[in-house]
């Protein structure tokens, strides 16, 4: 079980350390601690249920960034077989912040693509903290075009704090690369399922996020800007991130409520990192059931419905002339 607790889980962390001690004592055979263990386990679950039923926007942002949370390659490894990773955009290089390739889910071949974060300093550097450069988006598009060519569905896993802001990214056309993906994804002739598995920050997320189904895992966020940057621009301080997170309505429930995503994939109590197996199973089940629906549609039906869905997003009013 996870031992990296959030500040809002202090109460659980304390009970958990008692539980670990109790289990050790019990295991040594000196004392029968089974009653205590049972009691603590029950108490922890109760506390978790309470805390996780009333999470704030900012707390969900924190969970989406937990260092032990499963990343794209963890999902691929645990829900797919026969993964063949494909590299490079054929122009500049291979962007390690986006991974992708052929994989089988329950025997069906799909093109699976996602942003990849690193777990330690070295990996984080290699993966650029999950912040893709233009060549990452161009690699993603190349793979999607392959999927279209061979008539296989596309699955994208979104987990990025944003597209990389840097000299080279601008020189190589970060804006153009993302824009091109939005255009091409909207008319791709195969089913596309997009799942926010962690952070969904702005254009960097949307760059692989135009799909027939856009799903969010329960404790993830998706918006036009991170709460920290929003706070810095609107309130001119980094300290209003909690306020900003609430104002942006960036949680899965808010996004679903506003009709901006199609569904929510439940996570285990305490977040995906508490029980990755359960998270993998839920994601796999969602992909399989959505694929079944989408595979029954013709390419034309898919594209028309996809464009109609995104065209309907927005709230405007007609003023009297």
């Amino acid at each position: 079980m996870n031992t990296n607790w959030f500040d809002f889980e202090k109460e659980i962390a304390e009970m958990h350390s008692q539980l670990v001690k109790a289990e050790e004592t019990h295991a040594q055979g000196k004392l029968d601690m089974s009653d205590t263990i049972e009691h603590l386990t029950k108490k922890i679950k109760e506390a978790q249920t309470t805390i996780y039923s009333q999470l704030s926007g900012w707390q969900k942002v924190q969970i989406s960034r937990h260092q032990d949370r499963p990343y794209t390659l963890d999902y691929i490894e645990n829900i797919c077989t026969d993964f063949v990773e494909l590299h490079g955009d054929r122009h500049i290089k291979d962007d390690k912040a986006i991974v992708g390739g052929w994989a089988k889910i329950d025997g069906q071949s799909v093109m699976i693509i996602g942003q990849q974060k690193g777990r330690n300093t070295k990996q984080r550097q290699m993966r650029n903290f999950g912040m893709p450069n233009p060549e990452g988006y161009r690699k993603a598009l190349r793979l999607m075009k392959l999927a279209e060519k061979f008539n296989r569905p596309v699955i994208t896993l979104i987990d990025t704090p944003g597209a990389s802001p840097g000299l080279e990214a601008e020189e190589r056309g970060q804006g153009e690369a993302i824009a091109r993906n939005l255009l091409e994804m909207s008319v791709l002739n195969v089913p596309i399922i997009c799942i926010v598995i962690g952070e969904g920050a702005s254009g960097g997320a949307l760059g692989i996020g135009v799909g027939d189904r856009v799903m969010m895992m329960e404790y993830t966020w998706y918006s036009v800007i991170s709460p920290e940057s929003c706070s810095s621009i609107l309130w001119r301080t980094w300290d209003k991130k909690e306020l900003a997170a609430d104002a942006l309505k960036l949680s899965a429930t808010d996004m679903k409520g506003n009709g901006l995503v199609d569904g929510i994939i439940p996570e285990p109590l305490g977040g995906a990192h508490h029980n990755p197996e359960e998270a993998f199973a839920n994601v796999k089940a969602t992909i399989l059931s959505e694929l079944q629906t989408l595979k029954a549609m013709s390419p034309e039906q898919l594209v028309n419905a996809r464009i109609e869905k995104f065209s309907a997003m927005g709230v405007v009013q007609e003023l009297p002339a």
Partner: peptide
Amino acid sequence: GARMMEAAFSLMQMAKTSAKLALLAK
């Protein structure tokens, strides 16, 4: 860029306009 006070609604205008441009291109 995007208008922050409409948050994800603003973000999705990027997808909406790009999708329409795809139709124009076609």
